[in-house]
Design a protein around this nucleic acid. Structure first.
Length: 487
RNA sequence: GGUCUCAUCGUCUAAUGGUUAGGACAUUGCCCUUUCAAGGCGAAAAUACGGGUUCAAUUCCCGUUGGGACUACCA
């Protein structure tokens, strides 16, 4: 059975690139009827952020990417675990790494290293100065194993390194790039266990992926050059090597690796700005993948059905905000009024205008005009509070103030005589337009001042839609307010 | 510097030997129209360069150039 995993480090937030990696892993697993696992790689104590895990989980669940196994989130938001291969947080698996590292030591595939960071730095500086490839020189590999074991056990500060077999080359088949080969002589004797007793990524990832039964490793391209070390480890342990797929990176507009410096990279940022999860997921899925057809609106379910690693491209994709905006607009447009009010609840509440009943109609006025949910309260504000506006705004460019003075009182009178039941968009439009014809006015000379009087804005939805939302009393009231401004 | 890797409109991409090189976003023209949106119909816009292979190269091979990743007791 297919089993994939996403293994983030809790360094603060979920990066949009991470979201895409998680999404592809999730889609691939679901597509093949398999399982998607979430593991937390917190072996770097210096970069650890306290609520990092909760944060990542929150973003993932928001996007609809729910793990079948590993670290999960309960409905109350609490973090928990699911599955029999745990613990799924690396800092809780230290004894496991120790056990396996000792096995490597016994078989002579690893060795203790007592080199100081000063020596390592100097070594590297020398190599760089001589324009040589950098890497550990293997000094401690020459130590007598028994002696070195005693030294380590007596408490001398040490790390454990992989004794890399430098002969030949490592060849593997990447599901996205095809055959990739590395000369083993250039592969470093990677540190496996750090001096603080924690494993490095390279060691933990191999042990965990094997123990947790991962069949397909889908991860970012930045890992491709460390594959030889991992392959070596698999071979030393006699384990089966999982399939691997290295995804191209997400890029800034200037084509550099997507970074915080050039815009928002946290999923949380987009959440807060009022992007819908469906839009972000759809957008991010298409950054590097396409179905090979011209369909581009995809729900998560549809993605699962059509996703295919063979349609994942090899080139890095620029994170293009304009396209994301377009997707967001599409998804907002497709929401029902009730759904729109509900999904925009946090922003409406913050603006102090959350009231489902009153909002359902109002929200419909602006749905095609907003890009994000965060814009909604500001956009419909005029429905509740008529903004102040300059009297001149009431005059249409092809009309005159005299004409407004003539038209507006008659319009107020006309609307005063209508029934409340006439205040629907359709009826209002029909009746008003025939009234305009009857009176011999030009359409714009009536509708422009009407719209401005009702919205207080230069740009707004159409006058009939607004009037229908406002109702008879408020409509005639606002019309009268406008009239007073120009008398 | 070394290793790996990538290269189609501004951006995301389709086309895996034969197409007027297709679509989407963005840009832009027109229509609709009381404004802004939305919508409809158009336009402009790409195979990095140089060699091969082939009757035929976006497509296969080599080189050049350019980009990116990695090169930590970070992931």
């Amino acid at each position: 059975m297919v089993k994939t995993r996403f293994a983030p480090s809790p360094t603060g937030y979920l990066h949009v690139g991470g979201l895409r990696t998680a999404l592809y892993s999730y889609l691939f697993a679901k597509k093949h009827g398999g399982k998607f696992l979430l593991r937390i790689e917190d072996t770097d104590r210096e970069r650890y952020v306290a609520d990092g895990v909760a944060n990542i989980l929150k973003s993932l669940y928001w996007a609809g990417i729910v793990p079948d196994e590993g670290v999960t989130q309960e409905t109350n938001g609490k973090t928990s675990e699911e599955g029999k291969n745990g613990p799924y947080t690396q800092s809780e698996r230290l004894d496991i790494y120790k056990e396996y590292s000792l096995k490597l030591l016994e078989t002579g595939h690893a060795y203790y290293c007592f080199c100081t960071s000063e020596r390592l730095e100097k070594l590297r500086a020398d190599q760089q100065a001589r324009k040589m490839p950098t890497g550990y020189d293997g000094l401690c590999a020459k130590l007598d194993p028994a002696e070195s074991k005693q030294k380590a056990e007596s408490g001398e500060k040490h790390v454990m390194r992989l004794k890399m077999d430098k002969h030949g080359e490592t060849v593997f088949n990447d599901l996205i790039r095809g055959e990739v080969r590395f000369k083993n002589e250039l592969v470093d004797d990677q540190v496996l266990i750090k001096s603080d007793g924690f494993p490095t990524y390279h060691f933990a990832v191999v042990v965990d992926d094997h123990l947790m039964g991962i069949t397909h490793i889908i991860r970012g391209e930045e890992w491709i050059s460390s594959v030889p070390k991992h392959v070596q480890l698999y071979k030393y342990f006699g384990w089966e090597i999982p399939e691997m797929a290295h995804l191209p990176l997400l890029l800034n507009p200037d084509k550099s690796k997507l970074s915080k410096r050039q815009g928002d990279v946290a999923v949380e940022d987009y959440m807060k700005k009022g992007y819908l999860p469906e839009a972000l997921v759809n957008f991010v899925a298409f950054l590097g993948w396409n179905p090979g057809t011209e369909k581009e609106m995809y729900s998560l379910e549809e993605l699962i059905a059509d996703f295919d690693l063979s349609h994942v491209g090899k080139t890095g994709g620029v994170f293009n905000l304009e396209k994301l905006d377009w997707y967001n607009k599409q998804y907002i447009k497709n929401l029902s009024n009730a759904q729109l009010v509900e999904t925009a609840k946090p922003w409406l509440k913050e603006a102090g205008i959350y009231n489902p009943e009153a909002l359902e109609k109002a929200v419909d006025l602006e749905r095609e005009r907003i890009t994000t949910l965060a814009e909604l309260p500001g956009a419909i504000q005029f429905v509740f509070d008529l903004p102040g506006y300059a009297p001149e705004l009431l005059v249409w460019k092809k009309s005159s103030i005299e004409e407004v003075r003539n038209v507006l009182p008659q319009l107020v009178e006309f609307y005063t005589n209508l029934d409340d039941a006439d205040f629907t968009k359709e009826k209002l439009e029909e009746q008003t337009k025939s009234w305009i014809t009857e009176k011999g006015f030009s359409v714009g000379s009536v509708l422009w001042p009407m719209r401005v009087a009702l919205s207080g804005q230069e740009n707004s939805p159409g006058p009939f839609e607004i009037a229908a939302v406002l109702g008879k009393a408020e409509t005639t009231n606002r019309l009268s307010v406008g009239l007073k401004k120009i008398i």
